[in-house]
């Protein structure tokens, strides 16, 4: 009962935040709605007793990523209501609509056609989409983080390393893009030059 009430409240926050992201005209208000949405997701994690995921959700998404969004919005000064009448790319809206409908269809399909296979016991958690058995292990508070860490650094070590590499490439790429400017754009800000 308490689970259900908590779920309804946090789901309302998630959906309300998501709508706010799309519907508000001001980019800063959009970013704030996004935080609300992330918070709702964190509460959903807590209801599932995934405390670690809940707090990582807040630290990484609610804290770091949206802070960076806001930082860029403020620094670039795009924090005013934008004209959305014109399409930036030709056919952007139609494609977006199509992609949205397709994604929604896939989600609905997943919801209706997945679920426990009739042949195996429900706890085995075999799903119709991938056909592979999902790992469903009851977590205790103490083992929560341990299990997650062990799984991440043994079974999924390749994916983990690949993600790390991807982030490194992104960082290097960003630096190269910024540093490749001509000398005429360079602002002299080295220590000591101010006195010259």
């Amino acid at each position: 009962m308490v689970d259900l009430i908590s779920f309804i409240i946090s789901a309302a926050i998630v959906l309300g935040g998501a709508l706010g992201v799309v519907l508000f005209a001001n980019p800063v208000h959009n970013a704030l709605s996004l935080i609300a949405s992330f918070f709702g997701v964190a509460v959903l994690f807590i209801i599932q007793e995934a405390h670690f995921l809940a707090l990582v959700q807040i630290v990484v998404y609610g804290g770091a990523i949206v802070v960076l969004f806001l930082f860029v919005i403020m620094l670039l000064g795009v924090d005013r209501i934008e004209a959305v009448e014109e399409e930036a790319l030709v056919g952007q809206r139609g494609t977006a609509l199509l992609a949205g409908v397709l994604l929604f269809g896939v989600l609905l399909g997943g919801l209706f056609f997945s679920g426990p296979d009739a042949d195996v016991a429900p706890e085995a958690g075999r799903t119709a989409i991938t056909g592979r058995q999902a790992q469903v292990v009851p977590l205790t508070d103490e083992q929560n983080v341990t299990q997650l860490g062990r799984d991440l650094f043994t079974r999924n070590i390749l994916a983990f390393e690949a993600t790390g590499l991807l982030l490194t490439i992104a960082t290097v790429g960003a630096v190269v893009l910024v540093r490749n400017r001509g000398a005429e754009d360079l602002v002299v800000d080295e220590p000591g030059s101010a006195a010259a």
Binding site: V56, I58, V59, G62, D141
Partner: peptide, 17 residues
């Protein structure tokens, strides 16, 4: 909390808002 110290990190990253 079982993850109390992460809660501190989460709150300190929210305080900036």
């Amino acid at each position: 909390l079982p993850v109390g110290i992460l809660f501190f990190l989460a709150m300190s990253s929210l305080g900036i808002y």
